[in-house]
């Protein structure tokens, strides 16, 4: 499965690159990622939620790092769902922002888990990635992922329609949503 998506973030290239390069930041906008921990300059451990309350953990290696231009990575051999990705950063034509071009490849043929993950991504994995980039933009431009009463889940906004009604949350709902 191959996915591409693009967005323009109204922040300087250096800042957008630096944000992404600190891989720990990725879960703040990527819905399926729970945690990324870097182990050294090049390697990191990624934890993602999978169906039925399972988590998938894999190691990834940065294969290319062109400062303020491009970052590429791939999972190491043991990954249950082999995957690789590239993100490129280009100044936007108006000079006020950064074009972010993402390219991801998941090897979902590689076994049962792969298929389950593919299913988990839903009928429209492209939409998932688009939404991830929308949240990246929100975080970089406004400092937060936007929440409404109908869709209060922040980056965990996987729910489809109908949503909760557009009326204020109960105290319990708020606690759950804010994870406090």
């Amino acid at each position: 499965m191959e996915l591409t998506a693009t967005t323009t973030v109204r922040r300087p290239v250096a800042e957008v690159y630096a944000f992404w390069r600190l891989l720990e930041n990725l879960p703040s906008f990527m819905a399926h990622l729970d945690e990324v921990r870097t182990t050294d300059e090049k390697s990191s451990t990624w934890t993602a939620s999978a169906p039925f309350d399972h988590t998938v953990v894999w190691e990834a290696l940065i294969t290319e790092d062109l400062v303020e231009e491009r970052i590429a990575w791939r999972s190491t051999e043991q990954a249950d769902v082999p995957n690789e990705g590239t993100v490129s950063f280009l100044p936007s034509p108006d000079g006020a922002g950064t074009e972010v071009h993402v390219h991801l490849v998941f090897d979902i043929e590689a076994g049962k888990l792969g298929r389950a993950v593919a299913k988990y991504f839903g009928e429209d994995p492209r939409q998932q990635l688009d939404d991830d980039l929308r949240r990246l933009k929100q975080v970089l431009e406004t400092g937060e992922v936007v929440r409404s009463d109908g869709a209060p889940w922040g980056k965990r906004a996987r729910k489809e329609f109908p949503q909760r009604p557009a009326q204020p949350l109960t105290v319990e709902e708020r606690r759950e949503v804010l994870g406090a």
Partner: peptide, 23 residues
């Protein structure tokens, strides 16, 4: 949001960051 390209162009009702159901 006041920070996106639409807001910068004063096209506030087209703000790119304020709609969680943008999709």
């Amino acid at each position: 949001c006041g920070a996106c390209a639409a807001c910068a162009a004063q096209l506030y009702s087209c703000c790119e960051n304020s709609n969680p159901n943008a999709g």
